[in-house]
Amino acid sequence: MASASVSIPSDKGPFYHGTRADLKYGDLLTAGRISNYQEDLIMNHIYFTALINGAGLAAALARGGGPERVYIVEPSGRFEDDPNVTNKKFPGNPTRSYRTAEPLKVVGEVTEWLRQTPEQLQEWREKLLANKGEIIN
């Protein structure tokens, strides 16, 4: 039985990637780098979303001391629903979260999104620390 996490999404975007990295237009985000959230984990995929506020939350929670950045990205190849949230935490894919093993190209940056309060961010950080679940990488 095929799961929703291996289906090819029909989402057309636009797509966003939240981080604290200082990127330029045309830069490629590639797999094989250290996770934004766990310094001892090398990622096999690049994660992105079609929801700007989701990317903003990802940027706020990312490791590093740089400012929160949300980039507009274009997938260069196939991508799939993110199995870490799709049908694992939320039925279907309401977060419109995806991953790809192929590069994402930075094509823009946005500066306006709904930002979490310091209290909300602390709650998210505590959830991440308490999460003993395995990341499907």
Rank of each mutant, 00 (worst) to 15 (best):
D27P: 11
P118M: 04
H45E: 14
E109C: 15
R20A: 10
A21E: 15
A130K: 10
G77E: 15
Y16P: 01
T95W: 14
L57K: 10
A59G: 08
T30P: 03
E112W: 00
T86S: 13
N93A: 07
G32C: 06
L41W: 08
L104Y: 03
D22T: 11
E134S: 10
Q120D: 14
G13N: 14
F79K: 02
Y98W: 05
L128C: 06
T95N: 14
Q120Y: 05
R33P: 02
E119F: 11
A55N: 09
P9V: 07
I46Q: 13
I8H: 07
F79S: 00
R33W: 05
A21Y: 14
T19M: 02
S76G: 08
N84Q: 05
Y71G: 03
G133P: 01
P14Y: 05
K127W: 10
E80M: 08
D81L: 11
S10T: 15
S10H: 10
I46F: 08
L23N: 02
S97M: 08
F90N: 12
R20F: 12
S10K: 12
A2E: 15
H17T: 07
N93W: 04
S97R: 01
D81M: 10
V73G: 00
Y47M: 03
F48A: 05
T49D: 10
N53W: 06
E102W: 05
A59Q: 03
P83H: 02
E109D: 08
F15Q: 13
F48M: 07
G133N: 14
S97H: 08
Y37D: 04
G26K: 13
L104G: 00
K132Y: 09
A50F: 02
H17V: 06
W113I: 00
Y47T: 00
T117F: 09
Q122E: 14
T19A: 00
E68V: 08
F48D: 05
L61F: 05
L129N: 10
P83L: 01
G32K: 06
Q116P: 05
I8W: 04
V106E: 04
D27V: 13
Q116F: 10
G32T: 06
G64A: 07
G66Y: 05
P103F: 03
K89I: 15
H17Y: 13
